[in-house]
Design a protein around this nucleic acid. Sequence first.
DNA 1: TGGATATGTTAAGATTTTGTTAAGATATTT
DNA 2: AAATATCTTAACAAAATCTTAACATATCCA
Lengths: 221, 221
Amino acid sequence: MAKILIIEDEKSIQRLIEYDLKQLGYDVDSAFDGYEGYKKASKTFYDAILLDLMLPSMNGMDICKKLRTEGNISYIIMLTAVDDEYSKIQGFDLGADDYITKPFSPRELAARLKAGLRRQASSTKKDVLQYYDIKIIRSSYEVYKADIRIKLTLKEFELLTYLVVNKGQALSRNQLLTNLWGFSYDGDSRVVDVHIYNLRDKLDPKADYLKTVRGIGYKLI
Amino acid sequence: MAKILIIEDEKSIQRLIEYDLKQLGYDVDSAFDGYEGYKKASKTFYDAILLDLMLPSMNGMDICKKLRTEGNISYIIMLTAVDDEYSKIQGFDLGADDYITKPFSPRELAARLKAGLRRQASSTKKDVLQYYDIKIIRSSYEVYKADIRIKLTLKEFELLTYLVVNKGQALSRNQLLTNLWGFSYDGDSRVVDVHIYNLRDKLDPKADYLKTVRGIGYKLI
DNA sequence: TGGATATGTTAAGATTTTGTTAAGATATTT
DNA sequence: AAATATCTTAACAAAATCTTAACATATCCA
């Protein structure tokens, strides 16, 4: 089921929404201040993000803008008490997909969320993926690190893309083999390790966002 | 920048779209009923037209049909609240290029518009295509490199045209075979490779804008 | 601590993919 | 029908990439 992130500091509202969405079968996660929410959203992929406008430590608009700049494609719904046209327009401008004014009925939220997610699902796959300063352009098979082109082989490219798409998750060697090689090797192939090594080498020998998960496989934090 | 015409009678929606598109740098014009919209569209050229289905004085379908009959080639996106397959099909049938259901997110509209305009600009009925110092004249099947005529065979011509229209994208052998040969070969034909080789040879043996994307196919950078 | 297990690192050679050439097949023109 | 042009195939050469295997190093757990 779809993963939803609620970024809302008012506990009463947050609890209500979380309860409701869980009842509807969504996989719900919450953050209670702006920065925490931003970190969560940029680390893990959520199908949708419910984003309060007024938040401690980092406001909704900034979070939205920053996420979009990083290539985040979650369906973002802004929650706010401010019902004026100005902030509504500004919200859209910064990349929100929908906008809902407090107080709202749970039914309305659910309906909009459902509609949004449906649209999301049908909308085309993103061509450009961004992970910090790494940019992946799928249609041309190009990768840039801080705007400098990095030449990757096909397997490296596929591996990196898969890691970025599933960022935050630990991916087992078997999962990688199955999804990128097309079948699972008999247990103990070291192919993945070698490609990971080469990828680390090409991307940045010093950086350590490509973590080893001992006993499992690898993940991008 | 591209000129866009919005034909929409609901002021709130019209204002929102207009604001957004202007923010994105488009040159926006609006009409508030069907007949006014039709007159504007047939008098002035717009790169794209956002056309509401339900309008006073002349409905969207009729406008679309009439414009197409007159040879209008603007990129037409239909806006409608009616989310049934029937009117969607009919919309396309009458010559709409895309179709978007209300309520839609401005981001989605912007994305579709951008994609549509890009398609419009590069591929459609342009007779002369230019790629650096290479000029392709489709109607006469002539190719010039720095104003010097280069004689290409038909397949070479088609291949080059396809590459130029889709420049930047890596094109798989299968995609090329399907689109230029009309069917996909059983996996491992080398026809494409040979034509690419000849094309490189004729265009400029030294230049390397026609890149090999190992494991995939070819692309023009 | 020290052996066991997992991962990092390297490089050779196996494999796959593409470049290149030319001959034969097919289509077009004379 | 012959001549010509174009396309496709096949074969070998060249290059890039992938995989394996081996050793080094790190981490875990008794």
